[in-house]
Design a protein around this nucleic acid. Sequence first.
DNA 1: TGCATGCATCGATCATCATCTATGTCAGGA
DNA 2: TCCTGACATAGATGATGATCGATGCATGCA
Lengths: 119, 119
Amino acid sequence: MSKSLTDPSPTQTVACCSPLASEPLSADSAERIAPVLKALADPVRLRLLSLVASHADGEACVCDLNDAFDLSQPTISHHLKVLHEVGLLGRSKRGVWVYYRVQPQALADLGALIGGVAR
Amino acid sequence: MSKSLTDPSPTQTVACCSPLASEPLSADSAERIAPVLKALADPVRLRLLSLVASHADGEACVCDLNDAFDLSQPTISHHLKVLHEVGLLGRSKRGVWVYYRVQPQALADLGALIGGVAR
DNA sequence: TGCATGCATCGATCATCATCTATGTCAGGA
DNA sequence: TCCTGACATAGATGATGATCGATGCATGCA
């Protein structure tokens, strides 16, 4: 409710755990990881994240993102919020515009957790 | 409806795409990837996959998995079916028992897609 | 000060999902 | 042949989620 606009990691990342296949996941860890995956598990959010990640300077304005979808502005805003809340996207406001950028470490941690690459 | 019990990859895996952060994901790719992530994005299914993956011989009997959760047998069966349908778990029946095993390549592909490791 | 623009929040709606109980199916043993 | 045990399927229900239109809140400009 009182989060700073520039807060880089609103929630904990997934850097907590060894890869899925290396040892049984605790119930607690699973409860912590699932929301991050759930945030990613939507076609629109996947494309949003990918768009932001591959944008010049690694960040993108909401106005640009809106135009890439046939969805209402509130819907895009909602999806960006979901990605921001789990720590996959950072957010900064400059003037009237809001820019989102990926958090590379969060993405790398998640990839390692799933792919089994040593942490 | 007519899937073989031993079918190793009921659906396409995620080996289709370059990493999320390397270029904007197409709408089609996103629609294909999201269901796999959605299958993973549940605490119970995360633990199930992890349990199977870290089990001796890389496979586990449903009876063992049931005992690890405070959930009904049909619920566990449902979750296993979800993981199987997206190609994350393989399945084989021996006698009265059914064994599930991870599909390492599917997991690796997914990890690379997210983590950005070159495919 | 007043207005337009960029984005977030609110409240509603329809769809999807996790879970349950009940039941079906199939294999093995008495 | 009948029964038991292992697992899947069916149908119902309460919860969560994706989306929208309406509205609120800043910022910058005239």
